[in-house]
Design a protein around this nucleic acid. Structure first.
Lengths: 152, 152
DNA sequence: CTACAACTTCAAGTTCACTTGAAGTCAAGA
DNA sequence: TCTTGACTTCAAGTGAACTTGAAGTTGTAG
């Protein structure tokens, strides 16, 4: 098996070495050590990191990615079955996200032509009340569903 | 004109009062004060906050929203022209975002059936190298364009 | 007039996904 | 052997978008 140093992996995967150490800390990737305590990554880690980046691009947090990746082998190239399971669930998520953005776009388009400033019928100007919002810290994804238009 | 307390605005807009004070701090919304120094918001702020939330949903940072909203009047209901300018530019952005997610989805779909584990032809497993990554702090949106598939 | 919820400011805390820096160790070429 | 660059750990810093808490003030219903 061919092993990569952290610098090599970083360059080939297009991420910083500090990010790789961080991912390892979080259990997203794993490494062996040389006698001198330096990390060596199996080539499969390259794909793993690519997967992590792809997942982030579709809005998953590293925690969610970690859960998803737990089902994949660390050292081995994943089998077709491993991969199918994961990609199907992610595909569904992507479909969802696309649909949401499309809905928002359609609302926006409607607004351009609809004289919505009367704000009787505009979904953007009349959002649902009380978006549930538990816990502190930022919310990177709002995830507030648009509800039937309330009577203004 | 009808004025809203911060609590009323918060409830109707579906955000926390602390968030509203934060937005005001950032210049995203504005208020008048009562003789006793309490905030009173014009009704138009309701639409403004709704716009802010919509913009966040499509991935804009508050800074970007601030820039966009600078072109809109604070107190007045925006005119059709005000609104058209804004919504057209946002629509373009949404189109873009949707296209990117669709591309990712298509790659994912291809992978499900393509035996991509050979990783000769899979875009997800073969991302472009060297995503440019300036500055510190998190990157909420990766924004790394996928490039022509490199020879592995 | 009093109670009490809703408001005020300001500083500090929180989460995420990292980055930066300090202080030291390892590996490879000249 | 020496130097240099790549590596090591660990603690602390960063930026975004808020939230929380403390300590005090205002507005209103009874």
């Amino acid at each position: 098996m061919e092993w990569l140093t952290i610098g090599e992996l970083a360059e080939r995967a297009g991420v910083a070495t500090s990010a790789l150490r961080f991912y390892e800390d979080r259990g997203l990737i794993a490494s062996e050590r040389t006698p001198g305590n330096q990390r060596r990554y199996p080539r499969a880690t390259l794909r793993r990191v690519a997967l992590i980046r792809a997942a982030q691009e579709m809005g998953l947090s590293l925690g969610e990615v970690a859960v998803a990746l737990e089902t994949l082998p660390h050292e081995r190239t994943p089998t077709k079955r491993d991969w199918e399971r994961l990609s199907r669930s992610w595909r569904a998520r992507l479909d969802n996200q696309i649909a949401e953005l499309q809905a928002l776009r359609d609302e926006l388009s409607d607004c351009i032509g609809c004289g919505c400033l009367s704000l009787k019928s505009c979904a953007i100007f009349n959002p649902s009340d009380a978006i549930s919002n538990k816990g502190s810290g930022p919310r990177y994804l709002l995830g507030d569903e648009r509800m039937p238009i309330p009577a203004d």
